[in-house]
Structures are given as C-alpha cells and as structure tokens.
Amino acid sequence: MPVAVITDSTAYLPSGWAAKYGISVVPVQVVVAGQPYDETEDQQAERVVEALEQWHPVTTSRPSPERFFECFRAAQEAGATSIVVATLSAAMSATYESALLAAKECTIPVHVIDSRSIAMGLGFAVISGAEAAGLGANEFDVTSIIERRAEASQVFFYVDTLEYLRRGGRVSSTRAVVGQALKVKPLLQLVDGNVQQVDKVRTASKALARLADLAVESAGDAEVDIAVQHLSASERAQQLVDILQERLPAATIVQCPVGGVVGAHVGPGMVAVVVAPKVDWL
C-alpha cells in the first residue's frame, strides 16, 4: 500500500465499499441533544431523523486533527509511504482544515484535497483514486484523479422543506418561510462547494422527475456512474433509480442513504442524485 487513500464519512460510500477499495474513513460527528455520535455508528441517521421531527437540537462537528492523525499513523504503520486524503467541501465544513493540521504532523507526504463536493460526488472520486493507487499510481496521479473526478461530478438534491437548511444557516429565513407558504419543493445543486437553488416544483413526483431530467442532462453522452441517495426516503429513491435505469441504461447506478451530518441540514425526505463522469488517470 504505497499510497493510502482516506476520506471522511460524508462520502457515504455504500456498505462494504470502503473495505473493498481499501479506503480509510474518518468520521464526522453529529450531535443530537448534546450527545455526540460518530457518523460511522449504526442508527445515527435514524436518531437524527427522530430528533429533527421532534424539534430537538441537532448540530454537526468536524473531526479533530487528532482523529485524522490517528488514521494517518495507522496507514503509515500498515506500509503506506504517502497519503492522499479528500474531504467534503471546505465551504460547508472545517473538516478540510482538520486534515491540513494533521498532515503537518505526519512524517510521510500527505496530500489534502478540498473536493468541493459531498456524498458520492466525493465518494466516486476517492474510489477512482483508490483504484488507481491499487494499480500502482503514485501520490500525484492519485491526487489528480480525485480532484478531476470530484470537479467533474454534479450533485443535485431535493428537500421536502427549506426549514432544516434554514436552521443550519444554508438559506435565509425569509426564503424558507416563503417556500413553506407556497408549498414549494426546492431543487438544489452543489456549485463550487456551495448550495444553490436551481429550480422549484410543487409536488414530490415533479421533484423526482426534474431530478431525473437534471441527471440525464448532466450525463450527456459521457460514461458515468450515478448514485441516488436519500434520508428516510427509500421508496422515492427507488422510484428515481427506476426512472434513471430506463433513461440511462448504460450508466452504473447505485442507491445508498446519507448519514446524520447531511441529514441534520436537509431533513428527512431528501433525495439526491450524483452524476460522476469517469476520468482516465493514465
């Protein structure tokens, strides 16, 4: 393992994928009514959903530099001669800063990447990096492929209400109140690491149809991987998978949930689609 690939838990890799690709995961924390939970713990997403629905306070917390350093040290002890670590967007979390601080204490080279993405926009990127590392790519090639695939990926999502984004400061109170009054279902996109509204519809079915349109437009004629992700909305997510399998039969599509950290900001009922064009590293 000359090059170790590390990410944080907001990559939301499907079950078993981190072990399959040899990727180490540093947990971000979610804090429910004052009790912190690692996002890698079982049932943390369910705790977040329940707390949000009952209006209990839910916040998130970046991993400490020490958590990253422990992961770096373990990789070095396992034989890594360099490390590439990719985090969720620095515009959304200080996780990137924690990784940078830890990297300064490491005795082997550590390349820290602000993916400007999240969920499988980050996940597909680190998978490609790990695959390249497994084929003998050096630390610079691995860094490049992760950066390029994260940059090429598009993340679109729909939320049932803007209320949870308002609580987290992602949208203004005025916009959230107006959206609720009009019963608007906002469709959002991650643009250079920040959340922006791209459209709005009135029903969940129209939101899923618009997400499918956005995914198809984003995919174009490229060879892509697609992830449909959700929080407490598995049936809606499966509906979107079915639509995309019909409209993009050549694409690889995976369905997997998000965890409590993203859930704290978007609330239950969220459905997202990530479109990740494949990139070459040779």
Rank of each mutant, 00 (worst) to 15 (best):
D8V: 07
L13P: 13
S15Y: 11
S15C: 05
G16N: 11
V30C: 10
A33N: 15
Y37G: 08
Y37F: 15
T40C: 11
E46C: 08
V48D: 02
V49Y: 04
V49P: 01
P65Q: 00
R73I: 02
A78W: 06
T81W: 09
I83R: 01
A86Q: 02
E97Q: 14
L100S: 08
K104A: 12
E105L: 15
E105N: 11
I108Q: 02
H111C: 10
A125K: 07
G129V: 01
G136V: 02
G136D: 00
D141Y: 00
A152P: 03
S153E: 05
F157D: 08
Y158G: 12
T161S: 14
S172N: 01
S173I: 08
A181T: 13
L182C: 03
V184Q: 09
D192A: 02
V195H: 02
S205K: 14
D213L: 13
E217H: 11
D221Y: 03
A222S: 15
V224P: 05
A227I: 02
V228A: 10
Q229S: 15
L240C: 09
L244R: 05
R247S: 13
L248T: 05
V254H: 13
C256E: 10
V258S: 09
G260H: 05
G263V: 03
A264S: 15
G267W: 04
L282Q: 15
